[in-house]
């Protein structure tokens, strides 16, 4: 966790000197504005995804479907609000109640998560394979819900989830930090964290210690689904529309990247939610900085690719062995 924190600090320090106004904050209409707030606000969906993804990766799995789940949830919520004619969701009597809409949408997210979880834990599919399925079909389902249209809606109450503020801080930030806090508590105050790490670190020993790995895996995929659901709601509320094709596109990669940068091993075992959060912030800060420098934002993608390879190389035992070997050679 220390290294990403240092990198984050270094980028911020760079911004302090070279990006004018990066640290300036101002209050307009009772809401904080400024690059820093903007960075965190934009990072909120990936932060949310990375919370769930961290737990999944800690059990030795991965969830490639979170982007598609965001699209499904976005489509669900938008359809429930806008009630387009012919939508198969019309039958759900939620009226205009925002809590009911949110509850149904997150229910859908939970079902998606459980679907992944059942395939992984009860059918013993490889996690990549199992979640790939929803990654393929998920966008199709989302388009089915929206009938292929981009559903635009006006609902100030719901839209505030994306663009509103609470005590001056944008609501997405509250949601991301809230989910992080909740999962932090859940994983450290209950045995969930211990069991997740045990299952990821040594499944056989965990089994012999009476830990039910199936239930644990089911639970983390469900949590990951819920996290993706909240991220999907934020994304939809932000643009006041559901775009089944582009909502959450490639965000599963960002989430995996955040977890990897944060220091959680891709092989499972020990995890750090705070690290993943810093990973998500680091990437957004980098993107914003690059954008502010006038460099084409596409460079961020290339940079992300290099970072993920670098991080994985450093985690790889083979690479470490080779590196140490060379050092030893230089010394001896």
């Amino acid at each position: 966790m220390a290294i990403p924190l240092i990198v984050l600090a270094a980028i911020l320090l760079f911004d302090l000197f070279f990006t004018p106004g990066f640290f300036s904050l101002e209050i307009r209409d009772g809401r904080l504005y400024g690059s820093l707030i903007d960075v965190v606000n934009r990072a909120a969906p990936v932060m949310l995804l990375s919370v769930g993804m961290t737990l999944v990766i800690a059990t030795g799995g991965v969830d490639l479907s979170v982007g598609a789940v965001m699209a499904i949830v976005g489509a669900t919520s938008a359809c429930l609000i806008a009630k387009p004619s012919g939508s198969i969701l019309s039958g759900i009597p939620v009226g205009t109640s925002i809590p009911a809409i949110i509850a149904v949408s997150l229910g859908v997210a939970l079902i998606c998560g459980l679907f992944n979880g059942v395939l992984v834990s009860f059918f013993s599919f490889q996690p990549i394979v199992a979640t790939l399925l929803l990654m393929v079909a998920g966008r199709g389902l989302a388009q089915l819900l929206t009938d292929g249209q981009i559903i635009i809606f006006t609902n100030p109450g719901f839209a505030s989830m994306g663009s509103g503020a609470w005590f001056g801080i944008p609501i997405p930030i509250w949601l991301a930090v809230g989910m992080f806090g909740l999962m932090g508590l859940l994983s450290r105050r209950t045995n969930l964290g211990l069991f997740v790490e045990a299952v990821g670190s040594n499944p056989v020993a965990s089994q012999l210690s009476g830990i039910n790995a199936r239930t644990i895996k089911l639970a983390v995929y469900a949590i990951c689904g819920i996290c993706a659901g909240i991220a999907g709601l934020i994304g939809t509320a932000d643009i006041k529309a559901a775009d089944a094709n582009n909502a959450g596109l490639y965000l599963e990669l960002d989430a995996i990247l955040a977890v990897a940068i944060g220091g959680t091993s891709m092989a499972g075992g020990r995890f750090t939610l705070a690290g993943s959060l810093i990973g998500a912030l680091l990437m957004q800060t980098l993107a914003t900085t690059i954008f502010a420098r006038g460099i084409t934002p596409e460079a961020t993608l290339v940079l992300k690719a290099l970072i993920v390879v670098g991080v994985c190389l450093f985690q790889s035992p083979r690479f470490q062995a080779r590196f140490q070997h060379r050092q030893a050679g230089a010394q001896g």
Binding site: L194, E197, A198, S201, N202, V204, A205, S206, L208, S209, G269, R270
Partner: peptide, 13 residues
Amino acid sequence: KTSGIVPELSVRE
């Protein structure tokens, strides 16, 4: 090693 200890967890855990 393979079916007893959980290597990454602490002694306490």
